[in-house]
Nucleic acid binder design. Sequence first.
RNA 1: GGCGCGGUAGCUCAGUUGGUUAGAGCGAUCGACUCAUAAUCGAUAGGUCGGGAGUUCAAGUCUCCCCCACGCCA
Length: 574
Amino acid sequence: MSSQAKRHLITSAIPYINGIKHLGNLVGSQLPADLFARYQRARGAEVLFLCATDEHGTPAELAAAKTGKPVAEYCADMWEVQAKIAEGFGLSFDHFGRSSSPQNHALTQHFAQRLAEEGLIEEIVTEQVYSKADGRFLPDRYVEGTCPNCGFDSARGDQCDNCTKQLDPTDLIDARSTISGSTDLEVRETRHLFLKQSKMRDTLDNWINQKADWPVLTTSIAKKWLHDGDGLQDRGITRDLDWGVPVMRADGPWPGMEGKVFYVWFDAPIEYIACAGEWVEAGKGSDWERWWRTDKGADDVRYTQFMGKDNVPFHTLSFPATIMGSNEPWKLVDYIKSFNYLNYDGGQFSTSRGRGVFMDQALEILPADYWRWWLLSNCPESSDAEFTWDGFQGGVNKDLADVLGNFISRVTKFCNSKFEPTIPAGGAWGDREEALIQELESRLRAYEAHMEAMEVRKSAAELRAMWAAGNEYLQDVAPWSTFKTDPDQAAAQIRLALNLIRIYAVLSAPFIPTAAARVCADMNTLDMAWPTDIRTALTALPEGHGFNVPDVLFAKITDDQVAEWSERFAGTRD
RNA sequence: GGCGCGGUAGCUCAGUUGGUUAGAGCGAUCGACUCAUAAUCGAUAGGUCGGGAGUUCAAGUCUCCCCCACGCCA
């Protein structure tokens, strides 16, 4: 890749503060983003990898109320929880921020003012359901009642789940608040700010049309929203809530907007930028504008976003509309990598039903690398993917335990028993070694190209093939046989194999960082240099270099465990 | 209902701008080896590429219709 960028800004879709995410959420954004960030760092690029919690909105308020905590405290606590779990999965964020940060408040208000100055904000009076008992306006989906169409008694204000008819809250018969159950509701007028996305439509359309190299999933969703029906619609960017960024201009109050906050979809993506400011405030960096302002050094940055398909409209349209509409030199995204959904054993993961494996539970039962490997090597790239316990057990046991783990085990133990726990001297390479080098060189180039292109599954397959090549080599040259007649030749063979272990650790680290670090520790080396030239890299550990014979690197998942876990995580199915 | 993504070996999936006998991993069967986490390596079997029509010298790969699954509908 001659055009390889040297500076990478990478963001993962920011998870909502309300609760712990499941494996489908993880594999749809944070995990592949981490893979890419780790790979780029390993290749020597300068990387700023950012993520945060998305904290505003009604669901957070309600979740906090349920726990009896003030919403700010609830969010602070849940941020801790999510940050700790992210750390457990080895997600190497340079900073894990919060959309409720002062930086985001300031930037959100700044963008709103800029958009207003550019004529892209319109004030519109709308009608909203107000609950006197709750003392608040209710979002459509928090109003329930009987569907006027089919008679279903739990139809929501936005749609009836029974007959799928789209509704207006005022259509409902015997409407009630889902928060308190109160039927003391009334329709009140309220004034809100709308972002005039429709004025940006042609600009966005032209921009998307230039992105021929983006995943079809990304562009098809964007184009659908641009061209479907009447085209891109203006969107309300404010709400009648307490918890959020107050609707103000950067330089003062916004008359008529007192007591209102910006809607979560407006402030959440701005947190990508604000997070860089938090990164500086946390003392981890010194100049965030160098990453985000093309007039201040960010013109050579390549910015890549990772997200699930449900987030694509915001990232292809709404957020770019905010950025472009500001008419300021902010860095626009260069590439949007989007993912489909991961299903759980024939159905969807379900938070409400406790169906499927959630991030905290996953870490309780197995090391992060097991999940990282399987999720990434089976990630929902071209279509929805399926998690099954059989598939997970088979994949992990075969790839990690048998192919990689056992290779390390057989090589180190053989060396230890026939020689010493030291890289043995003697012998020389021949044709078989040359053939192996050729194969690895060729596979490594393919691996690099796939990683650069964020072809996650293909990258994993290529990496695995490199692991397998080591086993093929060993089987061919059979050092256990050559040792009997020509110990020097066996020494040369096992010396190569021991060096291969270090190379595998380096190449595999983006996928399985913890195991890779452990292997390097066992091999007694700090040399994590990318093996650009395989031939040279195969001599990195010199003759006489001592190592520790490692314990089992990946214990296998047993049938009993699978039986127990499939029962435990099945949830309450109907 | 509209739109979107798919429907390729038992399973999970690759298949570039249409071009010789449709590929991989797992699983299965057989064999080799015995250093290793009963691991590894090799070989074999297995597909009328959802169905139908069409364009073309040539279609999994383009066009139209239909069927099925999943998702979205602000």
